[in-house]
Simulated assay, not measured.
Amino acid sequence: MKASSIGTRRLALIGLGILLVAAMSYVVMRSGPLAPTRVTVVQAAEGQITPQLFGIGTVEARRSYLIGPTTAGRVRSVTVDVGDTVKTGQPVAEMDPVDLDERTAALDASVARAGSAMAAAEAQRRDAQARRELAAVNARRYVELGRQNFISTGAVEARLQEEASADALVNTADANLAAARQDQQRLAAERAGLRQQRANVRLLAPADGVVTSRDAEPGSTVVAGQAVLRVIEPSSLWVKVRLDQARSGGLAVGLPAQIVLRSSQGRPFPGKVARVEALSDSVTEERVAQIGFDQVPAGLSVGELAEVTLSLPATAKTVLLPNAAIKRRQAQTGVWVIDAGTLRFTPVRIGQAGLDGQIQVLDGVNPGMTVVVHSEKEIGERSRITVVDALTGRQP
């Protein structure tokens, strides 16, 4: 009786152990290190993709003017302030003329004196011409008398010499008159240059715009070319944006753009690519483009950050896959394909990608193939997998 009871307990313990081992094996195979890798998949399908470029930029002015003197001097007055609107030709500041007015008055007097000298030279020239005409008449008369032997040869030669002297006096008068005229022209040019310097003392707005900076105050001294004021044309504001070189293959002037300013989050402004810079940044591997607004927003400030999205032309129909499905294995780009329940790594040739995560597969995958998108760990050809809807949540 005792032996039978002991045998029954042994059988019960053996059965319990078998159940425990089976349960542990089930747990290990389902959730332990030997469990199949959970993966999510997608069916390859054809479609079109609209590639987009995204970049961060800053608002700048296409036309900006630095207003300053052409010579060193002291600022006498500044008549506008930051934020003021100015018109073309409007006086915005004035430099101290120092002695320009006195030098102009002195040159005015010199020009007048040169005019008097030119008048005197003109009178001397007329007198010399009259003397030459008289000397020529006397010379002809004496030559005729000498031919008839009424006067001596010496008297004839004396009259001819007087005629030559009169000619020389006329040439001298012509030279003096030309010198006086040139001196007057030189002084007039100096006066015009001095008056231009005097006019440059008044700083004028070169175009309609808004004052963005006031860099000098009355009493301060500035050098030639140093800015006293900065003016921009509000209608010329655009966004200077940097774009990834690897994705900028279709970047061209005229591409439509959506601009989201930091001050207007969620409200995009339409625009177009106005210019693509010829020089790229080799350090950051970015290309630079200027994006113009279709209509410049009111209250836009220079230096404001903006997010720019450019839309490239739609591609032809090709196989599309999520970007996460593209893997690199042994220097090859490809995807994991599930074929008859087994895994197979297939090399692919990819094309353009969209901001929605879709990417073109130009070769290697046909429509209808089942492709692995995500896996909870690295997989290989011999990996055991189980397909799930999502990697997060409870394990099926």
Rank of each mutant, 00 (worst) to 15 (best):
S116N: 14
A135M: 00
Y142A: 11
A120E: 13
A155V: 15
A173D: 08
R132M: 06
G154R: 15
T172W: 03
A105M: 12
A139I: 02
Q161G: 08
A93T: 05
A173H: 11
S165P: 13
A121D: 09
L107S: 08
T88A: 04
A128E: 09
V143N: 10
V170Q: 06
V111F: 10
V143H: 08
D99N: 15
P97I: 11
V156S: 08
L100A: 07
A128S: 06
L107D: 04
A173I: 04
M95G: 02
A168L: 10
E102Q: 15
R103V: 11
S165I: 03
E162I: 04
S116M: 06
L177N: 12
D167R: 13
E157C: 12
D101E: 15
A128L: 10
K87V: 14
L107F: 01
E102A: 15
V92F: 00
T153S: 09
D108K: 03
E122V: 11
Y142D: 09
V98S: 07
K87C: 12
A109P: 10
A105H: 05
R131W: 01
P91H: 08
A130I: 06
N149L: 08
D96H: 13
I151H: 09
E162C: 05
D108E: 10
L107G: 09
L145G: 07
A139K: 05
E133N: 15
T104N: 15
N176D: 03
Q90I: 08
E122N: 14
E162M: 09
K87R: 15
V170R: 05
S165E: 11
T104H: 01
R132L: 03
D96G: 12
V137W: 02
A121G: 06
A112L: 03
T172A: 11
